[in-house]
Every structure is written in C-alpha cells, then in structure tokens.
C-alpha cells in the first residue's frame, strides 16, 4: 500500500513548526522587529505560486483571468520580498556593539 504524498508534506509541515518553535525561541528579544520583517519577507516565497499561475497556459494566451491574478500576486509579493529583506538589512546594520577602546 502506498502512502499518500499529502502525508509526506504534512510531516514536513509539522516538523517545520517544531524547527520554527525552537529557532524562534533562540532569537534575542532585541531582534524581534527584524525577525518580523524577515519572516514577512520569506513568507513572500508565495511568489513561486504566483509565477506558475501567471506564466501557465498557452503561449500568447496569458491574459486569462487566472493569469492576471497571478501577475497581480507577483507585484504584491515582489514589493514584500525587496521591501522586507532590504528593511531588515537596514535595521540589522544599525545594531552595533560598544567600542572597546573609547576614551
């Protein structure tokens, strides 16, 4: 008897929740804001669904309603990806340690 592929994906899902749980607890509280902006950026990996939706179908017939929703989703996700990662970068660049040898 074969196992439904859904079960495999479900296992990945559950294990990832546990990984997320332990990884996020080890995030230092002072970096909670960058944590939110970076999780926000990576959740925009939903763009892969948008790309498939937008480019699918017959060549030259990419303006189906389904494709248009794909294109719209691409724009939204792209704003998020660039905005999320760059603003995180900008924030993280500000976290500095005390200079050791200051007068």
């Amino acid at each position: 008897m074969e196992i439904d592929p859904f079960i495999f994906r479900f296992s990945i899902f559950i294990l990832s929740i546990f990984i997320g749980y332990y990884v996020v607890w080890s995030v230092t509280p002072s970096l909670h804001t960058p944590l939110m902006s970076v999780t926000n950026a990576i959740s925009s990996v939903i763009i892969v669904g948008a790309i498939i939706a937008a480019l699918a179908g017959e060549v030259g017939n990419i303006f189906d309603t389904a494709n248009i929703f794909g294109f719209l989703a691409i724009i939204l996700a792209a704003v998020n990806i660039f905005g999320g990662f760059l603003v995180t970068q900008r924030m993280l660049a500000m976290y500095k340690k005390k200079k050791k040898d200051k007068k």
Partner: peptide
C-alpha cells in the same frame, strides 16, 4: 497555499513564519 501547490519551500516557510508569529 503551499499544500495546494505541493510546494515544499512554501510549506516549510509557512510553518516557520506561523510558529514565529505565534511565539511572539
């Protein structure tokens, strides 16, 4: 959406972000 599209990257990410937000 990751389950719908059978996409591992989305499933992993979704679970990570979901639990991260819940912990916060």
């Amino acid at each position: 959406i990751g389950f719908t599209l059978e996409n591992t990257a989305l499933i992993i990410t979704g679970a990570l972000v979901g639990s991260s937000g819940a912990i916060l």
